[in-house]
């Protein structure tokens, strides 16, 4: 078991003929993911490294029975790509693209509400179910099939904790990068809920950062619903207020949005909060033994 994706997941890559899309589609295939199609308007009928390319999502899904889309489309055109994916009938959309205008995402989020289509990202590394499917840009080899679920707003910081979990011998079930934008798809609560229900996941590592209140909502969920242990780290204790730290969403604009405040709320909700990101894996070992 795992969450959201597994070895039978069939993936279409939107933007497969671009440099990033092409490279990472190859990497995902190498990992064992079923990349069944690519979509680039105007390039239908061609092949990208052996993968059939279609002009539209509708065609791609009809021909290949794909159920998931992985998006590398450039930011100005990305909202359109997400709408097209949702209309095509796929159930999961993983959007890697960084820099989508926030208002575009406001409209996308509203449009997806109630449709049953799930969105991961944007501005994220994607999702991997270890040993089964890698749908994203994370380096596959650092993962090891195991016991811990990972949710994170960050890319390389996720790789950091994944490596620690691998070194600790704990390994991972599924790792989900929910992205660093102010408005996106799945949030901490959605993914915590899925991990809580997944029999293979014994504990969860949650990596948050400054800005927004998604971690505070996660704390409420942990307090009320989670039986599995959660180890949490919040990046940005040294970040000055009002400054954007790389991610569009990593900015303190109001009360409750600092790393210190989020750590405090998570601690009081029963999460195991670490203040040293180099010790997330070790802490999980302590918690699970």
């Amino acid at each position: 078991m795992s969450i959201l994706v597994n070895k039978s997941t069939k993936v279409v890559v939107q933007g497969i003929t671009g440099k990033e899309g092409g490279f990472h589609a190859g990497q995902c295939r190498e990992y064992g993911t079923q990349i069944v199609a690519g979509v680039t308007p105007g390039k239908g009928g061609k092949k990208a490294d052996g993968v059939p390319v279609f002009d539209t999502m509708q065609e791609a899904v009809k021909e290949t029975k794909a159920d998931t889309s992985l998006i590398f489309v450039p930011a100005p055109f990305c909202a359109d790509a997400i709408y097209e994916a949702a209309a095509s009938g796929v159930k999961l959309i993983v959007c890697i693209t960084e820099g989508i205008p926030v208002i575009d995402m406001v409209k996308v989020k509203r449009s997806l509400a109630g449709t049953g289509v799930r969105l991961i990202g944007p501005n994220c590394p994607g999702i991997i179910t270890v040993g089964e499917a890698k749908i994203g840009i994370m380096p596959g080899f650092i993962h090891k099939k195991g016991r811990v679920g990972v949710i994170s707003r960050s890319g390389t910081l996720t790789y950091e904790v994944v490596k620690q979990l691998t070194d600790e011998g704990l390994g991972q079930t599924t790792c989900v990068g929910i992205g660093g934008d102010p408005v996106g798809g799945l949030n901490f609560v959605d993914v915590l809920d899925l991990f809580e229900q997944d029999p293979k996941t014994e504990g969860v590592i949650m990596i948050g950062e400054i800005g927004g209140d998604a971690e505070v909502q996660a704390a409420n969920f942990i307090k009320k619903k989670m039986k599995k242990p959660v180890v949490a780290f919040i990046a940005g204790i040294t970040a000055p207020p009002g400054r954007r730290m790389g991610h569009a969403g990593a900015i303190v604009t109001g009360g409750g949005e600092t790393a210190a405040e989020k750590m405090k709320v998570l601690k009081s909700a029963g999460a195991h909060v670490v203040d040293n990101p180099a010790q997330m894996g070790a802490r999980m070992t302590e918690v699970l033994t």
């Binding site: 960050s154 950062e209 040294t238 970040a239 730290m245 990593a250």
Partner: peptide, 14 residues
Amino acid sequence: GAGLAMSTMDLIKL
């Protein structure tokens, strides 16, 4: 990476 960059600052402080 932005998240790792922020955490690196935090580690220096720590």
